[in-house]
Computed example of a mutant assay.
Amino acid sequence: MNQILEPRNVIAAGTARTRDEAIREAGALLVGSGAVSEDYVASMFEREASVSTYMGNTLAIPHGTNEAKESIRRSALSLVRYADPIDWNGQPVRFAVAIAGLNNEHLEILSKIAIVFSDEDEVQKLIDASSAEDIFALLEEVNAE
């Protein structure tokens, strides 16, 4: 497994103000890093239309549909943090973590992210982190095999 979360895919101050803008912002990082094609971002909206990707503890994990697997070139994550919570179907989101996984790798990646975000102290550290580099350092364990 390559590096799933790269420093360039972590944004400490996202600019989105709506759920759809946040999906686009997090998805654009995956496209920009070459992990997925543009089609994958469209499938992230399809997934959101069928089931909310809000996970709790200010986290949403937008990801594509099963039909979009051919749009994934390699497994990757992007993370965008928002200073002001975004309304995600009535829930406050401070972190949009877009995920793309080849060969069901996304399940392992999801479990690692869920572990971090299930700990309120860890979430607070991510909120308080002063830079994208600090956020990346706190999440680097998601790259461990």
Rank of each mutant, 00 (worst) to 15 (best):
I4C: 03
I4N: 12
R8T: 07
V10C: 05
A12L: 04
A16T: 03
I23W: 09
A28T: 12
V31C: 09
G32T: 08
G32M: 03
S33W: 05
G34P: 03
A35L: 07
A35Y: 03
S37K: 01
D39T: 11
M44R: 15
F45V: 00
E46W: 13
E48Q: 02
E48M: 01
S50H: 14
S52M: 04
Y54K: 04
G56A: 12
N57Q: 00
N57K: 10
T58H: 05
A60Y: 05
T65E: 00
N66D: 10
E67M: 05
A68D: 13
A68V: 08
E70A: 14
I72S: 06
S75C: 08
A83N: 14
D84F: 10
D84I: 13
P85S: 14
P85W: 10
I86F: 05
P92S: 06
R94Y: 01
R94G: 14
A96C: 14
A98H: 06
I99G: 07
G101F: 07
G101P: 07
L102P: 05
L102S: 10
H106E: 04
E108S: 12
I115N: 10
S118T: 02
Q124L: 00
A129G: 00
E133Y: 05
I135V: 04
F136Y: 13
L138I: 11
E141K: 07
N143R: 01
E145P: 13
